[in-house]
């Protein structure tokens, strides 16, 4: 059999890889444009006090309402990635947000209460454990392991460090946990608190999964390579988890090279299965291009009863960047 005939036979005999469903939505709202460089959003869900935190990687942290209007700006330096978890600090349940600060290779923390964001005490923490040759702080995620918060940071050198976060009398402290080294630059990460997984995007290579347990020694595994149907080209950027009310769980990944949010179904310990690619097309609000960080909130929020997807947009009007707010109901309507 010639090679050409073999190819034709294989094409006919083998099942085709499932193609992702193409979903086209429009943003419902957007945050104010910034002349700096928007990078990564985090959604803080708290009823009428819900907020979107968004980094300007040249200047600091923006705080927006769900209408996109800016509530506050903290000019705290070159904050790259941000994430948030609900925790108990000083006996009160509130939001603990962390961010990577590129000015001085540190982690900084904020407390969120009643719709306001303030610096935690102490605000700034060393991000590189002693003896670890990590360099150039970059991505960040928070997680909960056995009910206790984790601050997970990565570096352009490929290192990923899991820090345990502890609190005593209202002050924040960090204790180093596991350190992992990937082959090239990571950035986007998300902790799947329910499943006990950490997903790490290596920008040019794909998405890795490893145990969220900071004491684990299990090696990371590449579960979504580049190229593959939902990530046909680099970079993979922001990552988030969507816990559907129907029990379906999804990993949401920013596919920067094709300007899409990629959706993967999650089932137990199986590898994520490519399901759909979401395009945020121009409408009343302009579309999303060269998206970087993203975040998802699964439950109801004011104006978004089925949840919210927030994506960074690199080409906003007036030569600015910003974050687009997408009603998850519009995404869900396009799912198979």
């Amino acid at each position: 059999m010639s090679l050409r005939a073999l190819g034709l036979w294989l094409a006919a005999a083998l099942p085709a890889a499932a193609e992702p469903t193409a979903i086209r939505v429009e943003a419902a709202a957007e945050t104010e444009g910034m002349r700096g460089d928007a990078d990564d959003p985090a959604i803080w869900a708290d009823g009428a006090d819900s907020l979107i935190l968004g980094t300007d990687k040249e200047a600091g942290l923006h705080v927006y309402g769900l209408d996109g209007a800016q509530r506050a700006f903290l000019p705290d330096g070159r904050l790259n990635n941000v994430d948030v978890r609900r925790v108990v600090v000083g006996g009160r349940e509130l939001g603990l947000a962390g961010a990577t600060r590129r000015d001085d290779e540190t982690l900084v923390f904020y407390l969120i209460e009643a719709g306001t964001v303030r610096r935690a005490v102490p605000w700034q923490h060393a991000a590189i454990p002693p003896g670890v040759p990590a360099d150039d702080i970059y991505g960040f995620a928070m997680g909960l392991w056995e009910g206790r918060p984790l601050a997970i940071v990565n570096f352009k050198s490929g290192h990923v460090v899991l820090w345990r976060v502890h609190e005593a009398q209202g002050t924040i402290g960090l204790t180093p946990g596991r350190v992992v080294a990937l082959g090239s630059q990571p950035e986007g990460m998300v902790a799947d608190d329910r499943a006990g997984h950490l997903y790490v995007g290596e920008e040019d290579r794909g998405i890795w999964r490893l145990p969220l347990d900071p004491a684990s020694e299990e090696a990371p595994r590449l579960v979504v390579p580049i190229p593959s149907p939902c990530l046909p080209r680099d970079d993979v950027e922001g990552l988030a988890i969507h816990d559907g009310a129907d029990g379906v769980r999804r990993l949401v990944a920013s596919a920067q090279g094709i300007h899409r949010a990629a959706l993967f179904r999650l089932e137990g310990e199986a590898d994520p299965v490519c399901e759909a690619l979401v395009e945020v097309a121009p409408g009343a609000v302009d579309g999303v291009t060269e998206t970087d960080g993203l975040d998802v909130w699964t439950g109801p929020l004011p104006g978004f009863p089925e949840g919210l997807l927030v994506m960074m947009d690199d080409q906003n009007a007036g030569f600015t960047t910003n974050f687009k707010l997408i009603d998850w109901a519009a995404v869900a309507a396009g799912l198979p």
């Binding site: 992702p20 193409a22 149907p229 046909p232 094709i258």
Partner: peptide, 13 residues
Amino acid sequence: MRLAALALVLCPL
């Protein structure tokens, strides 16, 4: 890459 996926990548341009 399959043709449909390639078209998806190229369509913005």
